[in-house]
Amino acid sequence: MYDFELVKPSSVDEAVKALADEDAQALGGGQTLIPTMKQRLASPGRLVSTLGISGMDGVSAEGGVLTAGGAATHGAVEKGAAGSYPALAALAGNIGDPAVRNRGTIGGSLANNDPAACYPAALLASGGTVVTDKREIDADDYFQGMFTTALDEGELITAVKFTIPEAANYQKFEQPASRFALVGVFVARHAGGVRVAVTGASEDGVFRWTEAEEALGKDFSAAAVSGLSVPAEGMIGDLHGTPEYRAHLVKVMTGRAVAAAS
């Protein structure tokens, strides 16, 4: 990989200052970024590590909101959410493998917005906000297509807030090689309605399946989605599945998530 300068700030302010440089990029656990840099597909001149920033790695729940620090590892989310938001804990506990979960961070994952990542589905279905050094971005506004988010250059995710639903479940159908989601569906039943977010499937990245949300809002049961269908158009087609297959899986995984959540 290309060489760079590694900066290890201890506060958000220091990090933001270091990120102001045009060539700078935030480094969470690096579990995606480092392999990308090895392929020389990314060439930041400066990496700003978030792991040493004090107060950015905690996970806590209060008043129906679970807050994870931007530098909380997947492993920390798995442990920290276990009591308050088990569906999120289970999701975090199935990202990558144990060693990856000890390094990879929620902020890093959401900043990258891989179309097959798990967290985007959780955040979008939960509702909530991405907290940065300068603002809070609503989940519905945050995801803007594959690898694209509402973050500005140099903007740092300091925390992620999830609205804890009454019932929720995430079903991940794994791509056999990468073990990322071939299709992942997060179903969350809130007092105000049901939210269904789908990852892995669409060429536009994570999305809400509104038709299912409406049907489940009336009848929160697997049967409610059995008559629906997802159009294959716009779904990803690759070595591991056609658009039709992914569209089919969206429905199957939604049904299973509902069954497991209710």
Partner: peptide, 23 residues
């Protein structure tokens, strides 16, 4: 069950890492 080394019609290796070659 899992493994396949795949090329596209232009001869590009599609399964070029463990991200796509299922070990």
């Amino acid at each position: 069950l899992l493994e396949a080394c795949a090329y596209d019609e232009n001869g590009q290796l599609v399964s070029a890492s463990y991200m796509d070659y299922a070990m």
